[in-house]
Every structure is written in structure tokens, then in C-alpha cells.
């Protein structure tokens, strides 16, 4: 499961409350039917007894302990296990996480990726009921991030652990989480299957959080037609426009070029800014025949980009009806 929200919206705080690091003011936290916190019933299980693993942003490895000692730290007090069994458990994690040969090293002597694996091994050795991942990749550079992401989720899958991933990066969440909760100002604005929410965000804020750059206020004309108040264009939709529909959104990469003006869903464009990325082209546009209109983002990649780059930027922009998202406020 993933938590997606802008920085500072309370995602990490929620994780800390689940782990018992912070104490919420009100409400109830339960895990698989086990109550961890209940303000009304005055229940607050200490973090030591919650069996919730927490992968910190900086991994929080104990710098005074070796890799082995870090991984075995939760086994020390466990009297049910014999010394041999503890050793085996540690060895098992070291093998699982490809840390062989690094047993006697200190965290400072490891790379970022190795440190993350040690932190995971330390959590697995404790065998918690759930693992909380607090922006696990935010501190890494892009190259390292891709391979580590893959590694981390491969390991989590192998171990069959359920996890909650907190991130402000929608790609990460989309790739690795089947279920999603969207967050704003400490409130859930939407929850459900990740793919469905990205496909049909329903609400304006949800559309924004899932990365929709273009959102316009509308005035309904009939059930399948509306006037965009921000772009000065008549939009035909595939879905039925209801009384609740207050906005229409379209993702930047789903806009298409057009050769000629049509009666609907097409505007003549004026380029405000052109941003050339290595593998994509970003155009910030305005409706040329609507002076007060607001900006429209158009993202081109692959073939489409090559055509635009080689030839000219087309005169007209088309809003495909099947890609228009009808949004409530």
C-alpha cells in the first residue's frame, strides 16, 4: 500500500503514529484486528510491542555496531531462541540480502545501497507484521535509485511482507503499490486501487496529486459538452457530465497535435515556453485566440517529439474526448 502526498502533508507523521514513535491526539490505530492505539479507550501500545518495522530515510543503523550486530539487535533479549538459532537467523538475513563478506563492517564503511539492505535485514530478523517505508529513495541520486527501487521491492516480495510506502513520488507509488491513499493536510482525500485512482481520480485534488498538470473550470453545456473557462474551448467528453462535475483535467502527455481547427476540442496555440529534456519535450502553451486563458502543459516524447523537433510546432492542439477526466471539487 502507498501513501502519496505533497511534502509536509502528514504522511511521515502517520507512519510515526502507526509505529508508536509519535502519539496521535485522537483516533484509533489497528493492525490486522490488533488495536495499537485508541484515544477513546486510552490504549497506547508501546512501540516495542507493536511489531511494526520502520525503514528510516537515513536507515538509522547503529554506527557503533557491525552489520551482524545491527541485524541481530532485536534477537538479543529473545529468550526463546538458543544462541545457535540466533546465529542462523542472522546468517540467513545476511545471505538473503547479499551482505556476505560485510558481516564485520561498520555502517560507515558501506555504500548507501548496502546500508539500506542492512536496515532491511535488521527489520526482517525482527519479523514484524508490517514494514513502513518512509521515503526510502528520497536521498539517493537518480541512477542509484532505479536499481535500489527494484532491489527493495524484489526483496519485499520474496519475503512476502506487507508494507506501507510513503512518498511524494507518484512514479514510485504507481510502480510498487497496488493500493493507494492520497493525502492532503493530514487528511485522506481518496483511497482505492492505485491503477484506478490514476485512471480516474474523480476529485480535482486527487488529479493534481497523481500528476495532472492541466485542470480547467467548466460550464456545463449539455451532458457531453462543456465550456472550458480557463482555456476558452468547447470540450466534448466521452463520459457523462453530471451536476457535480466542476472541473475537467487532461494529462500533459495525452494532448495531441492537430492540423486544422475543428469545432470542438481544438485550439490554435501560442508557445509561451519550450523546455527540452533529454528524452522529452515540454511545451507551455496558451490558446492563441483567448487572451486571458491560462497555461496548458504539453509533454511530448518518442516519435511525437521527433516530429515536432524536426518540423515545426503544430498550430493546433487537440483534446481527445476519451482522455478527459471529469472532476469534482
Amino acid at each position: 500500500m502507498g501513501f502519496l502526498g505533497a511534502s509536509g502533508c502528514g504522511k511521515s507523521m502517520t507512519l510515526k503514529c502507526i509505529a508508536g514513535i509519535e502519539r496521535p491526539d485522537e483516533g484509533r490505530i489497528a493492525l490486522d484486528g490488533r488495536v495499537l492505539y485508541d484515544a477513546a479507550a486510552d490504549i497506547n501500545i508501546p512501540p516495542q510491542k507493536r511489531r511494526v518495522g520502520y525503514l528510516f530515510q537515513n536507515y538509522a543503523l547503529f554506527p557503533n555496531m557491525t552489520v551482524e550486530e545491527n541485524i541481530g539487535v532485536s534477537l538479543h533479549k529473545n529468550r526463546d531462541l538458543k544462541k545457535e538459532e540466533k546465529k542462523n537467523l542472522i546468517a540467513e538475513q545476511i545471505a538473503n540480502l547479499h551482505l556476505k563478506g560485510l558481516e564485520k563492517r561498520y555502517p560507515k564503511q558501506l555504500s548507501g545501497g548496502q546500508q539500506q539492505r542492512v536496515a532491511l535485514g535488521r527489520i526482517f530478523a525482527y519479523s514484524p507484521d508490517i514494514i513502513l517505508l518512509d521515503e526510502p529513495f528520497s536521498a539517493l541520486d537518480a541512477y542509484l535509485k532505479d536499481s535500489l527501487q527494484y532491489e527493495l521491492f524484489r526483496i519485499l516480495k520474496e519475503m512476502g511482507s506487507s508494507f506501507i510506502l510513503v512518498s511524494h513520488n507518484r512514479d514510485e507509488i504507481y510502480k510498487f503499490c497496488n493500493d493507494l491513499i492520497l493525502y492532503e493536510d493530514g487528511h485522506t482525500i481518496m483511497s482505492g486501487r492505485t491503477k484506478e485512482i490514476f485512471k480516474n481520480p474523480v476529485k480535482k485534488e486527487a488529479a493534481k496529486l497523481t500528476g495532472c498538470k492541466n485542470i480547467t473550470r467548466i460550464k456545463k453545456i449539455n451532458d457531453y459538452e462543456a465550456l472550458s473557462l480557463d482555456w476558452g474551448v468547447r470540450l466534448r467528453t466521452r463520459e457523462k457530465i453530471t451536476e457535480k462535475t466542476a472541473y475537467i483535467g487532461i494529462r500533459a502527455h495525452q494532448l495531441l497535435s492537430a492540423l486544422e481547427d475543428k469545432e470542438y476540442n481544438t485550439i490554435r496555440i501560442k508557445v509561451i515556453k519550450q523546455l527540452n529534456g533529454p528524452f522529452e519535450l515540454q511545451l507551455i502553451l496558451k490558446n492563441a485566440s483567448c487572451r486571458e486563458g491560462s497555461e496548458i502543459w504539453w509533454l511530448l516524447s518518442g516519435n511525437e517529439m521527433d516530429i515536432v523537433k524536426k518540423a515545426e510546432i503544430p498550430d493546433y492542439l487537440y483534446f481527445p474526448p476519451e482522455e478527459l477526466m471529469l472532476l469534482e471539487s
Binding site: A19, G20, I21, P47, Q48, R50, Y54, A60, H76
Partner: peptide, 19 residues
């Protein structure tokens, strides 16, 4: 975070302090 990590790994306050 080291202290929090210790707590979520089931270490007692005493052992977090000393270790």
C-alpha cells in the same frame, strides 16, 4: 531516529541507552 529504530525493534529503553 536511532532511538526510534531501537524502540520499533523491540529494544527496551535501558538497552537503547546502554547499547
Amino acid at each position: 531516529n536511532l532511538i526510534y529504530a531501537g524502540r520499533t525493534l523491540g529494544m527496551s529503553e535501558m538497552s537503547i541507552f546502554w547499547k
